[in-house]
Nucleic acid binder design. Structure first.
Length: 405
RNA sequence: GGGUAGGUAGCGAAGUGGUCAAACGCAACAGACUGUAAAUCUGUCGGCUUCGGCCUUCGGAGGUUCGAUUCCUCCCCUGCCCA
C-alpha cells in the first residue's frame, strides 16, 4: 500500500528545485496508487569518481524518499561512458576506465550509496548492458532525433562554444546515451542536480521518440561546498565525504560559512520541517550552536551518536583548547644514533614531501616537539626518549625510539 | 584543404635573447586572530643545499647562439575564420 498522494507529494517536494512537469508527477502517482504499482525512479551515477560526498547525498536522499514511499530505485552505473573516457585530453576528471575498474567503482559506489539508500527496492544496472549492444546505425538514428541547436541550448555547451572552448562530438552523445538509459528501464522519474536538468529533459524527448511515456524530471539544488563559493566537488577539495572519518566530517562541517547552515540542514539531514523553522531562528542568534548541532547530526547519520560526541570533544580539545588529540599515529624510529637533524626527521617520517618543504615549515614556525616550537632548521633532536611531533595545525605523530644496536 | 591565433608551475595568466624558478590572481600550505579547519591579516609556494650556490622545468624533437620560455625547422594538440 502506498501513502496518500498528498503525503507523497509533501515528502517528494521537500528541498527540490524543480519538478518538470509537476502535474505529470501527480498523474503518475495517482496511477501508481490505483494500480498498486511502484514508480521506477532512476538515478545515473558516474563511476569514474566513486567517492561520494554530501553533494551526492542530496540526490541520493531524495531517491531514498521515493524508496520510503514504496517506489523502486534504479541506480544506473555509467560504465559505458566511463570506458570511453574523454579523449579531448583536457578533462582529467573523466579518465578512460577498463571494464574491471568500472565494475569495481560501481561496487564501491553501491556500498557507499547504501549508507543512504535502502537495500530493499533497489536495483543497480550497468548501462554498457544495452549501450554497448547498439550498432553504429542505431546510434546514427538516435543522433538524428536531436539537433545541434538544441544541444547548444545546454548552458555549459553554449558557454564553452561562445568562449571558444573545445567541445568534442562525443560530448553531444552523452545526453543521448543517458536518455537511452531511461528508455531501457522505462523510467517514470529521473533525479539529478539542477545541472542535470538538460540531460533529464533530453530523456523525456527520447522516451517519447521510442513510444514511451516521458519521465518526470526532478532536480535538486546543487550543494555549495565547504568553501561557501563553489559547488561541492572532489576536485575542488571542498567536500565532506560520506565515508570520511567522524573527526573529518565534524571539523569540515564547522568550517562552512554560517550562511550555509540552513541549506545543509534542509538538503543533507532529516530534521523535520518544524525543527527547520526553529533552526532558522537559532542560526541567526546562535550560529555556533546550530553549526555544532549540524556537525553532530551529520556524524551521527554516517557513523553513530557516540562517534558524534567523540568528534565534538576531540575538536574542542584540538582547536578550542589546543591540546593533543586523544589518539595519535605512531612512528617507530629504529636507530642507533643519539640525535637526528629535524629536517631529516620530518622527511623520514614522511610528514613532508621534500626537504625544502621541511625547511619552509620550520622557518614559518609550523613544527613543534612536545609543544615546543622548533625554529632552527639545523636543530638536532635528541633520540633518548619518545616524543610527539606536530606539523601544522592538524598533523601529529608520536615518535617511538627503538635502539637497534 | 587554406588562413589565423594559441599551447608557460595544481589552475588561470604575464613574459618575447641574458637581470627567469619565471610577475599577478586563484587554489594550497604555515603563522596570528577566532566559536571554527570560516573570514581577515602576514608569509611561503620546483628539487637539492655546507645558505655561497647547484640541478631540472615554459607542448615535443632537433638547430642557431657564449647564452633560448624568448630566434629558426619539423611534429603534436586547441580555438576562430574561409572552403
Amino acid at each position: 500500500m502506498f501513502p496518500s498522494l498528498n503525503e507523497q507529494m509533501d515528502l517528494i517536494k521537500r528541498g527540490v528545485s524543480e519538478i518538470i512537469p509537476e502535474d505529470s508527477l501527480v498523474e503518475k502517482l495517482e496511477k501508481s496508487i490505483k494500480l498498486n504499482k511502484p514508480l521506477i525512479v532512476k538515478l545515473g551515477c558516474d563511476p569514474s569518481r566513486p567517492d561520494l560526498h554530501l553533494g551526492h547525498s542530496v540526490v541520493l536522499r531524495k531517491l531514498r524518499h521515493f524508496q520510503d514511499l514504496g517506489h523502486e530505485a534504479v541506480l544506473i552505473i555509467g560504465d559505458f561512458t566511463g570506458m570511453i573516457g574523454d579523449p579531448s585530453g583536457r578533462s582529467k576528471t573523466r579518465p578512460a576506465l577498463t571494464l574491471e575498474e568500472t565494475r569495481k567503482n560501481g561496487q564501491t559506489y553501491f556500498e557507499q550509496a547504501t549508507k543512504i539508500l535502502s537495500t530493499r527496492r533497489i536495483k543497480m544496472l550497468y548501462n554498457s548492458e544495452w549501450l554497448s549492444k547498439m550498432t553504429f546505425a542505431e546510434v546514427i538514428v538516435l543522433a538524428s532525433k536531436y539537433t545541434v541547436a538544441r544541444m547548444l541550448e545546454r548552458d555549459d555547451f553554449e558557454k564553452r562554444y561562445r568562449e571558444g572552448e573545445p567541445i568534442s562530438i562525443h560530448e553531444f552523445l552523452y545526453p543521448l546515451a543517458q536518455a537511452m538509459d531511461s528508455v531501457a528501464i522505462k523510467a517514470d522519474v529521473e533525479l539529478g542536480g539542477t545541472d542535470q536538468k538538460f540531460n533529464l529533459l533530453v530523456g523525456r524527448d527520447i522516451q517519447r521518440e521510442f513510444g514511451q511515456e516521458p519521465q518526470v524530471a526532478i532536480t535538486m539544488p546543487i550543494l555549495t561546498g565547504i568553501d561557501g563559493v563553489e559547488k561541492m566537488s572532489k576536485s575542488l577539495d571542498n567536500y565532506i565525504g560520506i565515508s570520511d572519518p567522524p573527526n573529518e566530517i565534524y571539523g569540515k562541517t564547522l568550517s562552512i560559512p554560517d550562511e550555509l547552515i540552513y541549506d545543509y540542514f534542509l538538503l543533507t539531514t532529516d530534521v523535520s520541517d518544524k525543527q527547520l523553522s526553529k533552526l532558522k531562528e537559532e542560526i541567526n542568534t546562535k550560529p555556533r550552536d546550530a553549526k555544532r548541532l549540524l556537525a553532530r547530526t551529520l556524524v551521527k547519520m554516517y557513523w553513530s551518536e557516540d562517534a558524534a560526541l567523540q568528534a565534538e570533544s576531540e575538536f574542542d580539545r584540538l582547536f578550542v583548547r589546543k591540546e593533543l588529540p586523544e589518539i595519535i599515529d605512531e612512528y617507530i624510529l629504529k636507530t642507533s644514533e643519539k640525535e637526528m637533524n629535524i629536517i631529516n626527521l620530518l622527511y623520514e617520517t614522511k610528514l613532508v614531501s621534500s626537504k625544502s618543504e621541511a625547511r619552509r615549515l620550520i622557518e614559518q614556525g609550523g613544527v613543534s616537539i612536545d609543544g615546543n616550537r622548533i625554529s632552527d632548521i639545523n636543530e638536532n633532536i635528541p633520540l633518548e626518549s619518545n616524543f610527539v611531533l606536530k606539523v601544522g595545525k592538524r598533523k601529529f605523530l608520536k615518535i617511538t625510539i627503538q635502539k637497534d644496536n
